[in-house]
């Protein structure tokens, strides 16, 4: 693994985080271009790494756990650049950068053992894995807007809002952004399941069960929200909770998947 582009992207995300911390501490919170630029540079550096790694692997660069994590954080970064900026919620970058930095640091620290090298090439399976990760990118950004929702709601409830309150979007917009991102993620996840089914590889029952559970959990909260059975507060909480559960069980799924291949 050539770490140079990866280190560069980590540095850009680190700079983005630093600017967020400085803004918070100074109390003069202002969503500037710096966040967007540093995250864009981080995404470019990650793209360079993934292209390079793809050429080496002769496949989609998601063959080791660090690669998967980098691909996931890249997807979150791309979603932020596409959605976060167009919804005039560029402040989302301040919340997104720490998550990506955390994931990226984890990827750098984990051993890059290529467990799947013995797998024969199957484009459907590769598509299944790549689209799933992009879907989780959308879920990741959905959890970020959920965090922003809870944060802004807390500000409103406190009756004494901090300076950041003026720069955060209305809670209704944040709720809408979370809903759209989760729908997008769910559709992509469904597409990835279809690709996996067409690829028809042997798949562990546990992996299938866990994936279905996540799919079901996201579907459930979206349907409940659609039917006005879930308040904005609870919806945001579950969007965050499910994503962090998924992050924690991602290595487990990977392990079980490799075990099934072996």
């Amino acid at each position: 693994m050539n770490h140079l582009p990866l280190l560069a992207s980590t540095l850009f995300y680190f700079l983005s985080c630093c600017s967020a911390v400085v803004s918070f501490r100074s109390g003069e919170f202002r969503a500037g271009r710096f966040n967007v630029i540093t995250i864009a540079l981080g995404v470019i550096a990650q793209s360079c790494f993934l292209i390079q790694q793809g050429k080496i692997d002769q496949a989609c660069p998601i063959r080791t756990l660090p690669e998967i994590i980098i691909f996931l954080s890249w997807a979150i970064g791309v979603f932020y650049l596409v959605i976060g900026t167009t919804y005039r919620i560029s402040l989302m970058g301040t919340f997104t950068a720490p998550l990506i930095l955390g994931l990226q640091s984890m990827a750098l620290l984990l051993p890059a053992e290529k467990i799947t090298s013995m797998m024969p090439m199957n484009p459907w399976i590769e598509a299944h894995a790549a689209v799933s990760l992009v879907a989780f990118g959308a879920f990741g950004l959905g959890s970020i807007s959920g965090i922003m929702f809870l944060f802004q709601e807390r500000q409103l409830k406190s009756q004494h809002p901090d300076p950041i309150f003026h720069h955060l979007p209305p809670i209704r917009i944040l709720e809408e952004a979370t809903i759209r991102l989760l729908w997008m993620g769910l559709i992509l996840l469904t597409v990835s399941f279809a690709a996996g089914w067409i690829g028809s590889r042997s798949i562990s029952g546990t992996k299938f069960g866990v994936s279905l559970l996540l799919w079901g959990a996201y579907s459930l909260i979206l349907i409940l929200n659609q039917k006005n059975r879930l308040s904005g507060h609870r919806f945001a909480f579950f969007a965050i909770f499910i994503f962090f559960c998924a992050l924690m069980i991602l290595p487990l799924i990977r392990y079980l998947s490799d075990l099934a291949v072996r």
Partner: peptide, 8 residues
């Protein structure tokens, strides 16, 4: 201002 931060 508060109403706009709640409802947009």
């Amino acid at each position: 201002q508060l109403a706009e931060k709640i409802f947009g």
